[in-house]
Structure formats: C-alpha cells, structure tokens
C-alpha cells in the first residue's frame, strides 16, 4: 500500500461520507471541490473559504459590510470557527439542491432572518434587514412607508399578533408566498459535474 494509494483511499472515504450525508453523488462532491478550490484560493490560498472570499464571489468586492452575506457565512460555518471548510460547504449547498425538501429550505431561511437567534423573527430584525437591503440598493424610504411595509408583512405573517414570527408562522407564510424560497434552489447543483467537468482529472471513482 503506497502512501499515494493510502491518500487516495482516505480521500475516497471522505468523499463517500460527504455523499452519504448529502444529496450529492461522489462525482458531484468532486465537482463541488473544483468550485471550492476556486473560491478558497481567491484571496488566501489555504483551502478554506474566508468571509472576504465569499464576499468577493457574491458581491464582486471583498470590502464593505453586507448583513445578508454575514448571515449566509455564519450559517455555512457550522463549526463557528470563522472559515468555511469543504465539508461545511457541501452540507450547506445540499440544502440548495433542487431535490432538497422545502421544509429544510424554509428552516435555513428562518435561521438566516432570525438575526439574534432567539427562535423568532422579530419586527426589529425585519426592519434592520429592510434598511440593509435599501442601503445595498442605494435606496431610501421615509420611515412611515417602511413601517407600512412592516405592518403589512406582520399582518400577513404574524398569525398570533405577538409582534414576532415563530417558525410555525414562517412555514405557513412561505407556503402562501413560495417565491420567498426562490433563492434557496440552485438549478446548477443538479448538473454540477457539467458545470465543473475538470473534476474528472482528479476523480477517485468513475460513475
């Protein structure tokens, strides 16, 4: 057993574990590794995705603040150690798979919007997010209009009228407005081996 073949076996074990934990096949996990390599070497080539690298990929600039990018990063970073490792990347993207259940997608978005992680989406949090999206788009709304948007949203989503949206209320709300989960499905993930065909040069298995 040469060191090279031992390394290959270890890698195969890792790939097969990730495939069993997610909706991806081994070849698809390998194709995702091509994407991961690209993202994790864009600023610091250390095999980890730093927040600035995710920001560069999504916003085309590593500088500046973006509340939503921070939240996405935090949810990908399962171990909460400030970087996204490959297994965390594959786990999170699995939720964006077209075959992932809506319930999983809905839970992910709920956690994303529950900024202070209280188990509820509070009105103040929604206000903060609306202000953030307005700033991102260089838009401004007078406070009365902003409050009107919040009133309308909570009249629709906050069934028990306690000023916050519970996970159950959120589930009902997204069922009424499925477009709110549109971002949570990435059709590319169904054809990831075609999007990153170069994985075949490093593959451990031939499907």
């Amino acid at each position: 057993c040469s060191p090279e073949s031992q390394k290959g076996l270890r890698r195969y074990g890792e790939l097969s574990r990730l495939a069993s934990e997610t909706r991806f096949s081994i070849n698809e996990v390998e194709a995702l590794y091509e994407l991961f390599k690209k993202l994790s070497s864009s600023i610091i080539d250390d095999g980890l995705i730093h927040k600035e690298e995710l920001q560069l990929a999504l916003l085309r600039s590593p500088y500046g603040e973006n509340l939503f990018l921070d939240r996405v990063f935090d949810l990908f970073d399962e171990k909460r150690n400030g970087v996204i490792e490959f297994d965390e990347f594959v786990h999170a993207l699995s939720i964006f798979h077209p075959h992932a259940p809506m319930e999983e997608k809905s839970d992910f978005v709920f956690k994303l919007y529950d900024l202070t992680q209280t188990g509820f989406i509070e009105r103040e949090e929604v206000k903060q997010m609306v202000i953030a999206i307005l700033m991102e788009s260089d838009m401004w709304l007078p406070d009365n209009l902003l409050e009107a948007i919040l009133d309308k949203t909570f009249a629709d989503a906050d069934a028990d009228k306690d000023g916050r949206i519970s996970k159950e209320e959120w589930k009902v709300f997204v069922r009424k407005h499925p477009s709110l989960l549109k971002n949570m499905t990435l059709p590319y993930l169904k054809d990831i081996t075609t999007v990153f065909p170069s994985f075949v040069f490093n593959t451990e298995v031939e499907d």
């Binding site: 990929a57 929604v126 997010m129 209009l145 949203t153 709110l180 549109k182 990435l186």
Partner: peptide, 26 residues
C-alpha cells in the same frame, strides 16, 4: 410591485448577498 404592496421579505430576498447562483457564474 411598488414597495407599499410588497412584503418586507420579498424586498429582503433581492439582496445580492443571498443570491448564491452568482457562485456558479464563470
């Protein structure tokens, strides 16, 4: 839709920070 008829989450979901499809663009 105008902002008044739009619910807050529709607005929020337009953030570029939430559009992960960008990761796959070459």
């Amino acid at each position: 839709a105008s902002p008044v008829t739009m619910n807050a989450f529709e607005l929020i979901s337009k953030s570029r920070g939430l559009n992960l499809a960008t990761l796959f663009e070459k």
